[in-house]
Design a protein around this nucleic acid. Structure first.
Lengths: 341, 341
DNA sequence: TTGAAAGCGCTAACAC
DNA sequence: GTGTTAGCGCTTTCAA
C-alpha cells in the first residue's frame, strides 16, 4: 500500500531515520537545523512520502481515530449529527469510524470492543441506553467518551443534548392555548433518556397547566411502525384525546397514520406535535408541527468536547450541555372545536 | 487502551508467544495440539485478551478496514447505501470508515490519501466524477476499489449502479402516454455519470417516441436549491413545457418549488418525475412520482464485491452491475389538458 | 544538532 | 508441535 517509507526519505536526504522523523514532526522540529528540515521536507515531497499511521499509532499509542456509534443511519436524525462530528474531526486531522448498531445492544457491545481493539482514541456515542453495560465498560477502562443525543443513568460521561424540558413545554403550552385538555403523550422506548426526559417533562408541564399528565403510551422504538402500533392500541382501548405530544417525529408520523386508518384526520380531528424536526417534516402532507433540535451543532459540540479531552483537557464528568430548541408551528395543531369533557 | 497483550496470555499459559498466536489464529490453529489451543483460549478468555489490531495490521499489512467515500451523508440517498455496506462488512469482521467529502473533489483527494495512510484494505467510492483524478490515483496504485452509484470515464473499477436507461425510459413512456410532448429534462451536475447516463437516456427515449429530446437544463448539484435555480432560469427564458423529468428527487423537489413560486401547480399544470425514491417522497405534499432504485442492495453488493476482491478474487475490471429499478406512480403526473403546440 | 538503538504488539519463516 | 528469531514502520530516549 504505502510504498515510500521514512527510511527511504532519510537515506535519500542523507540523514538518519530518527532525524528525518523529527524533521517531519512539527512538535519535534525545533531540535533540528533549518537546513535539515528543509532538505528532508523536500525529499519527502518529491518521493511522495505518506507516513504510515498504523506504525505511528503502534509506537505512540494514539491512532487519531474516533468512533461514532449510532443506532441507525437511515433515521434522518443521525446523518445531521454525523455530519457535524465529521466536519470537526476531519479538520483536526482525525478520522471517523462509523458504527451502526442497528438498535441492538449486543451489536453495540461487540462493535465497541472491535473499535477498542483498533485502538480508537475515543468514542462519541449516540446510542446510550439508560442502563448501558457498554458505557459502564467504557467508563471502567477510562476511554474518553462523549454522549450525544442520549445519556445514561450513571452520568459518568459528558453529554451533549437538547433542552427537552423546554421543548416539551412549548408543545404543551401551544396545545393548551388552543384549548386542548385531553392530550396524549406518545413516548419513546423505555430505557432511553430521551423517552424519560420527554415523558417527565410532559407530566410536569401538564400539571403546571392544571391538567393530568397521565394519558400516556409508549412506542417500542423510535420508528413510524412503533408509533402506529402504540396509537392503534390506544384507540382500541378507547382512549379519548384531542391532541398528541409525540416524543419524536417518526412516532408522530406513525401516529398520524394510525389515526388516518380510523378516518381521524389531522389537524381537523386531532392535533399532533413531533420532536426533532427532521428533514421533510415541513413538507409532508400535512406538514408537521414539531420542535427543532440543533442536531448538527450537537455533533460538532460532541466532537469538540472529545477533541479537547484527547488534547489533555478532560471535561468535568458532570458536563451536561442542553442546547436551545425551537418550536416549529406548521398548522398541524388546531383549536379544539368542542373541548372534550 | 488494550491492556492484556499476547505475551501475557502466553506467559500465563506457559507457552511461547508464537504458539499462543497460532493457537488463537483459526487459520494457523491446525499446527497446534488441541490441548494447547484449549489452554491458550481459556487463558485468553480469563484475562480478557483483545488482540491489538494495529500491531497485527502492521505485521500482516491487512487492516480489515474499508473506507466508504460519500459526497454528503445528509442527502437521504446515501444512508441507505451506507447501511447496506456496513451490514455486509461488519458481518465479515471488517470495520467501515466513513468519509463525507462535502461534494468537494479536493477534500475527497485528501481524505482518500489519509485513508490510504491508515492502511485501509480497500475503498467503496460513491463520489465518482466522470473525470476523477482521485480514482486515477487509486487505479495507479492498484488499491482495491469498487464504485457505487456513480462511475467514472476510465472504467477501471467495478461499478454497482442501477439501470438508469430503463428508469428514464419508464418516466418518458409514462408521460408521453399521458399526452405530454413538451417534456423538459432537469439534469444533474455535469461531470457525474448519473447526469450523463440519465440525460443520454432521456434524449434517446424521447427520440424513440418521435419527440425532440433537446429541451434540457441542468442543476449545478444534486440539491433542491440547484433544481429550483435551474427551473427559475428556464421559466425566465420562457421555456415551454408540460412535464419535467428530473435526474434526481431533490432536483424534482426544487423544480416543484420554483414552479410554485410562479403559481404553477403540480400535477395540475406540470407533471414531474423524480429519481431514486428517497424516503418520504411518497408522503410529501404532493407525493412524488419517481423511480425506485435499490440503494441498500447497491451498498450490499458493492461491499460483497470488494470483500471478494480482498479475499483474492478480484473482479473483472469491466464488471458493471445495473440493478433493476421500479417506477413509482403516485398521481403527480397528470394527463395534459391542452396538449401544447 | 544528529546518530544509535530499542521497542510498540504482533506474526511468519525457520529451526528444533 | 513448539520455540526461536526477525521485523512490519515508526518514534524516542540516550549518547555523542
Amino acid at each position: 500500500m504505502t510504498r515510500v517509507r521514512l527510511v527511504d526519505v532519510a537515506r535519500e536526504a542523507g540523514v538518519h531515520p530518527g532525524t528525518a522523523s523529527r524533521a517531519l514532526n512539527p512538535a519535534a522540529r525545533d531540535g533540528v537545523s533549518r537546513r535539515t528540515v528543509r532538505r528532508v521536507e523536500l525529499v519527502a515531497q518529491r518521493l511522495g512520502y505518506v507516513p504510515n499511521t498504523l506504525a505511528r499509532g503502534l509506537r505512540t499509542s494514539r491512532s487519531f481515530v474516533v468512533a461514532l456509534v449510532i443506532p441507525d443511519i437511515t433515521n434522518p436524525l443521525f446523518p445531521q449529527i454525523v455530519r457535524g462530528a465529521e466536519q470537526v474531526l476531519s479538520e483536526a486531522g482525525y478520522t471517523l469510524v462509523l458504527t451502526d448498531t442497528n438498535n441492538d445492544p449486543a451489536t453495540e457491545g461487540s462493535q465497541v470492543a472491535a473499535m477498542s481493539a483498533r485502538g480508537v482514541d475515543g468514542f462519541i456515542v449516540a446510542t446510550a441506553r439508560w442502563e448501558d453495560a457498554t458505557l459502564d465498560d467504557l467508563a471502567a477502562v477510562g476511554t474518553p467518551t462523549v454522549l450525544v443525543n442520549r445519556r445514561n443513568a450513571a452520568g459518568l460521561f459528558p453529554y451533549i443534548g437538547a433542552d427537552d424540558r423546554r421543548g416539551v413545554d412549548l408543545c404543551v403550552d401551544h396545545l393548551t392555548a388552543l384549548g386542548h385538555c385531553a392530550i396524549l403523550h406518545l413516548g419513546g422506548p423505555a430505557n432511553t433518556s430521551t423517552a424519560r426526559d420527554r415523558s417527565d417533562a410532559f407530566r410536569q408541564s401538564m400539571r403546571a397547566h392544571g391538567l393530568s399528565g397521565d394519558l400516556s403510551i409508549a412506542g417500542a422504538s423510535y420508528t413510524e411502525q412503533a408509533g402506529a402500533e402504540a396509537v392503534r392500541a390506544a384507540l382500541q382501548q378507547g382512549m379519548d384525546f384531542t391532541a398528541i405530544v409525540a416524543a419524536n417525529d417518526l412516532l408522530a408520523l406513525g401516529a398520524a397514520q394510525a389515526l388516518a386508518e380510523r378516518g381521524i384526520t389531522c389537524p381537523a380531528d386531532v392535533s399532533i406535535t413531533g420532536y426533532n424536526d427532521i428533514d421533510f417534516m415541513s413538507r409532508l402532507s400535512p406538514p408537521f408541527t414539531t420542535v427543532r433540535v440543533p442536531l448538527r451543532r450537537m455533533g460538532e459540540l460532541a466532537a469538540q468536547t472529545l477533541l479537547a479531552w484527547l488534547d489533555g483537557r478532560p471535561p468535568d464528568a458532570a458536563t451536561q450541555v442542553l442546547l436551545p430548541v425551537k418550536f416549529m408551528e406548521r398548522g398541524t395543531t388546531a383549536r379544539v372545536a368542542v373541548p372534550v369533557r
